[in-house]
Simulated scan of single mutants.
Amino acid sequence: MKIGVVGAGNMGGLHTSLLKNRQDVEFVGVTDIDLERCTKFCDIHGGRAYRNVQEMIQSGGAEIVFVTVPNTKHKQVIIDGLREGAIVFGEKPFVTSLADADEIMTELAGTENRLYVGFNRRFAPVYARAKDWIRQGFEVQSANFIMNDGDMTSPPWVINTALTGGFLYDTTIHMFDMIRFLIGEIAEVQCIAQQSYYPLQDNFSFIFTTKNGKSIVMSSNGHASWAYPSERVQLWGNHATIVTEELDKVLHCGSNQATLDITDVKNLERNQKWGYAQMHEDFLGAIASNKPFSVTPEDGYKSVLITEACYQSAAQGGKAVHV
């Protein structure tokens, strides 16, 4: 499989480092608006620098394109790749507006296995293990989610909404997808937002109600320090609990159990612990075996719907908004 990367930044480097180690992948190169950065990228990873995604597909022969540009630039690159006939892997977030999401869904109409959305946490061992327990009969009745950022000035572009689309699109959207993955579809959201320390809303509190009637509380902010854990999920069932601690550990206590079932992966290699390696295997394996993608454009679209509903609720002082 011939693969090219759009975006010569940190995420482009992360994906390329993993791709280069696969026997079934040929890395053809990278394109970025900064040609000098492209050249440095190729010095490290190999391949060649291309002027744009069209040239990378037409001249470089890329069959699969990884989109790792800033969040607000996703739409056009995804569409360019699709129109050139490539299969596209799009980093999260899918896009940063409903208008952009609608445009991509229109482009995809009548096709399948053309676009995969990179929600890596679905493949992180702690969340995969939690999902296993749920499949085995743990019924979630209520939950508490936390996802915080310790410093929104490192790197400095994090506070640039023209690039990120806002804090919820850049950070918290992971947990919106995780609610759907672990518990079910979100029907309604109430959100209170504040601008505390940065020139954008950086402090959010949420109440979600799922379509199956479950209640979820969440908090997410960009000024929490890096005190451990900055990411935690607590699920409560019938006298039973599942708790995660960042991407390091997950524990389960079932009904009337005197002992805890603990999965500890804190010493696992980062790309395994964060689910990136498993996500690549899922994505590329589906292509090789011609199977449907497990993470679909519809998943990306629903994450945008939830994010926009949160911002809408916040703008209305926490009024309930249907998703």
Score class of each variant (00 low, 15 high):
Ser17Leu: 04
Gln141Val: 06
Arg48Ser: 10
Gln272Ile: 05
Ser294Tyr: 00
Phe181Tyr: 15
Tyr311Gln: 11
Ile159Tyr: 02
Tyr276Thr: 12
Asp132Ala: 09
Glu269Tyr: 11
Phe119Asp: 08
Arg51Cys: 00
Ile134Gly: 10
Asp282Glu: 03
Glu139Pro: 04
Val158Lys: 14
Ala62Thr: 07
Ala101Asn: 12
Asn148Gly: 08
Gly7His: 04
Gln234Tyr: 11
Phe167Arg: 13
His74Ser: 07
Gln194Tyr: 13
Phe94Ser: 00
Val265Gly: 07
Gly275Ser: 04
Gly60Lys: 11
Trp226Gly: 09
Ile287Tyr: 05
Gly318Tyr: 14
Ile64Ala: 07
Glu281Thr: 14
Gly13Phe: 11
Asp248Glu: 13
Lys273Phe: 07
Ser205Pro: 03
His15Met: 05
Gly150Val: 15
Pro125Arg: 05
Lys131Tyr: 10
Pro297Glu: 05
Tyr50Ile: 13
Val233Gly: 06
Ala240Lys: 07
Asn113Met: 05
Ile287Ala: 08
Val6Met: 06
Val189Asp: 15
Gln201Ser: 10
Thr111Val: 08
Ser225Phe: 00
Pro199Gln: 13
Cys191Thr: 15
Gly12Lys: 04
Gly7Asp: 00
Ile78Met: 03
Lys92Val: 13
Glu107Ala: 14
Pro297Leu: 07
Trp236Arg: 15
Gly12Ser: 01
Ser230His: 10
Asp299Gln: 01
Glu26Leu: 04
Phe293Thr: 09
Asn221Gln: 11
Lys211Gly: 06
Gly9Phe: 06
Leu18Arg: 08
Asp264Tyr: 08
Gly150Gln: 11
Asn148Val: 05
Phe123Pro: 05
Val189Lys: 04
Val295Gln: 05
Ser205Met: 09
Glu139Gln: 15
Val295Asp: 01
Tyr127Gly: 11
Thr39Gly: 02
Asp43Tyr: 12
Lys302Ile: 07
Glu188Ser: 13
Ile186Tyr: 03
Leu247Ala: 09
Gln58Trp: 01
Tyr276Ile: 14
Tyr50Thr: 04
Phe208Leu: 06
Arg83Ile: 02
Ala309Glu: 07
Asp202Lys: 05
Val65Tyr: 01
Asn113Trp: 03
Phe167Ala: 02
Trp226Gln: 12
Arg129Asn: 07
Ser142Met: 10
Ser303Thr: 15
Asn238Gln: 15
Ala130Val: 04
Asn148Met: 06
Asp43His: 06
Arg121Thr: 15
Ala62Ile: 11
Ala143His: 11
